[in-house]
Simulated assay, not measured.
Amino acid sequence: MMERRPKLYSLAAPGRWILFVLAWVCVALGVVGIVTPVMPGTVFLILAAWLFARSSPRFENWLLTHPRLGPSVVAWRENGVVPRWAQLVATGSMAGSFGLLVVIGLSVPVLTIIGAIFVAVSAYLLTRPVT
């Protein structure tokens, strides 16, 4: 008698493909974030792992076991840990971005909303355990 295998995916094929493509976009952004000081890469890699978990367990495993990309994602999943340098770069990037938005002259209501989001994200990041 043939054993019935559990269904690996909960989404229909088009939904999985969309998540799969978004995961690769996040991997690309994560790599850019690793090599440039302007953008934090860890956040995009964590998001990519989440997207791969819902679209391709094979590529989720590839990301988690990758020697350069995987350790920060695994640390996040196991303990909610964000490296101190990533916390500082992310917070600094948001502060710099906010300053640029002020200089280009966004309206006060828009700046208020963006500022509140940046403060909330920074507070969350800075309260995570450090490696």
Rank of each mutant, 00 (worst) to 15 (best):
G92H: 04
P6C: 05
V82Q: 01
F52D: 02
W17C: 09
V89S: 10
A23N: 05
R84I: 12
V130N: 10
F98M: 12
A75T: 10
F98K: 11
R84N: 04
L47P: 01
F118L: 04
L100Y: 09
L8C: 08
G99S: 09
G33V: 12
V119F: 07
G15Q: 12
W17R: 15
I46M: 03
G80P: 04
T131W: 02
I46G: 06
L69H: 03
L47A: 03
L64A: 00
K7D: 13
G41S: 11
R128W: 02
I114C: 06
F59G: 10
V81A: 11
L51N: 00
P83E: 02
V74A: 13
L125E: 06
G41N: 12
M39N: 04
W76D: 00
H66T: 06
W24K: 12
I114V: 15
L125S: 06
F20N: 14
S72P: 11
V119T: 11
R128I: 06
V74K: 07
L69A: 05
W17K: 10
L8S: 07
P14N: 11
L126T: 02
L100M: 13
P83W: 05
V27L: 08
V73E: 02
F44H: 13
V21D: 01
T65P: 13
W62Q: 12
V110A: 05
R4N: 15
I117Q: 07
Y124Q: 05
L69G: 05
L19M: 15
V21A: 13
L29Y: 12
W85C: 08
S93K: 02
A123V: 09
G105I: 06
V21Q: 01
V25D: 04
T112K: 09
P37M: 15
T42H: 04
E78L: 11
S72H: 04
A49F: 05
R77N: 00
R4C: 15
V103E: 05
R16I: 11
R58E: 09
V25I: 15
Y9T: 03
W24V: 14
L45V: 04
W62P: 11
R4K: 15
R5L: 13
V108P: 01
F118G: 11
V38T: 02
V31L: 08
L47R: 01
S56Q: 06
P14V: 12
H66N: 12
I18M: 14
A48M: 12
T112F: 10
